[in-house]
Nucleic acid binder design. Structure first.
Lengths: 88, 88
DNA sequence: AATACAACGGCTTATGAGTCACATAGAAGT
DNA sequence: ACTTCTATGTGACTCATAAGCCGTTGTATT
């Protein structure tokens, strides 16, 4: 059952869209070496809300996602330019 | 004041994100030569809801946007691969 | 053990999702 | 010219859920 968990976390092909988005945010945030709280402050969302987004528990609206994407200093094109989001 | 309207509709740089998304959906739908109603049916949303999305009046969640994007037979990467969504 | 970071559960309120009746406009047919 | 059909848009409404915010807990790190 640790194997199942492993698959869920790495094989993004079968991941929920909200999980994919959360993982993408986390990736980009770690690249910038900032904490959830720091990112949350820039995006003007609550720290615990950001946790929910990164863990795929929140189904964000486009407007909130825009704030987060901008807080990551990128745009939607770059944010979604990732294998996770392509059916290929 | 017709001039203002003209700018709002064409100069996407200053458009609301929901307007941009609506315009992008409309573009892609017209390319496929299908009606709002046909697209709405595939995406399993109401026809009038689709109108609201295309006219930028709805702030959609990621899950609903996913249904629409898939109904257009593309993925998120392609959907957001457009000048409208890049800060350049 | 103190500090920083991340996650969870639960709660309120603001708004998205979904649906309706009705309106408008343009084509197509008669 | 006047219906009829097709496509789209609007306002208003209900119900579901996203947004936002607590307090608390867990877990490394120093």
């Amino acid at each position: 059952m640790t194997i199942d968990l492993f698959l869920v976390e790495t094989n993004f092909k079968y991941m929920d869209i909200n999980q994919k988005i959360g993982e993408r945010i986390r990736e980009l945030r770690k690249e910038k070496n900032i904490s959830q709280e720091a990112l949350a402050n820039i995006a003007e969302v609550d720290r615990t809300y950001m946790t929910g987004v990164e863990t795929g528990k929140r189904n964000v609206t486009v407007k909130v996602l825009e704030r987060i994407v901008y807080a990551l200093d990128i745009d939607f094109t770059i944010f979604f330019d990732d294998n996770k989001f392509s059916r290929k």
